[in-house]
Computed example of a mutant assay.
Amino acid sequence: MKHRADFHRDEKSRGPAKDVTFIVTVALKPGCEEEFFGLLTPVLDAMRHEPTFINAVLHQDPEDPSRFMLYETWADLDDVVQVQMHRTYRKPFWDRLPDLLREPRRIETWTPMRRDFTFFASW
Rank of each mutant, 00 (worst) to 15 (best):
L39T: 04
D76W: 06
T109H: 01
E11K: 02
E103K: 12
D10F: 10
R87P: 11
A46R: 05
S66H: 08
D99F: 05
F93H: 03
P65R: 10
E72I: 08
I23E: 04
D61G: 01
Q82T: 15
P42N: 14
A5R: 03
T41N: 10
P62V: 14
T21K: 00
W94K: 09
P112Q: 11
T73Y: 07
W74V: 04
Y71N: 15
E108I: 09
M85G: 14
P62W: 14
P65E: 12
F117S: 13
V80R: 03
L39G: 00
P30D: 05
R4H: 15
L28D: 00
M69R: 02
A5C: 13
T88H: 09
F36M: 02
E63D: 14
H8P: 12
W94D: 10
D64G: 06
P65H: 11
E35C: 04
H59R: 11
S66A: 06
D10Q: 10
M47P: 04
A46V: 15
H86E: 05
N55V: 12
T111N: 05
L28N: 04
F22V: 14
G31R: 00
P16F: 09
H86M: 14
R87G: 15
F22A: 11
W94N: 14
V24C: 04
V43S: 04
D6M: 07
H49T: 11
T88Y: 10
H49P: 06
W94F: 11
Q84L: 07
E34S: 15
D19R: 01
S13T: 15
M113Q: 13
P104L: 08
T41I: 05
D61S: 02
I107A: 00
D95H: 06
F68S: 00
A17L: 07
K91F: 11
L101S: 03
F68N: 00
V20W: 00
T52K: 09
H59F: 08
D78F: 14
L39M: 02
R14M: 13
I54M: 09
V43N: 00
S122Y: 10
K18C: 00
G31K: 00
E108R: 03
A121W: 12
F93E: 03
R90S: 13
F120T: 13
R96E: 10
R67Q: 01
K2L: 12
P92K: 03
R67P: 01
A56P: 10
I54R: 01
G38M: 02
V43P: 02
T118M: 14
F37P: 01
P30S: 05
A56H: 10
L100C: 01
F22N: 13
T21E: 07
D6K: 07
F120K: 07
L101I: 02
R90Q: 14
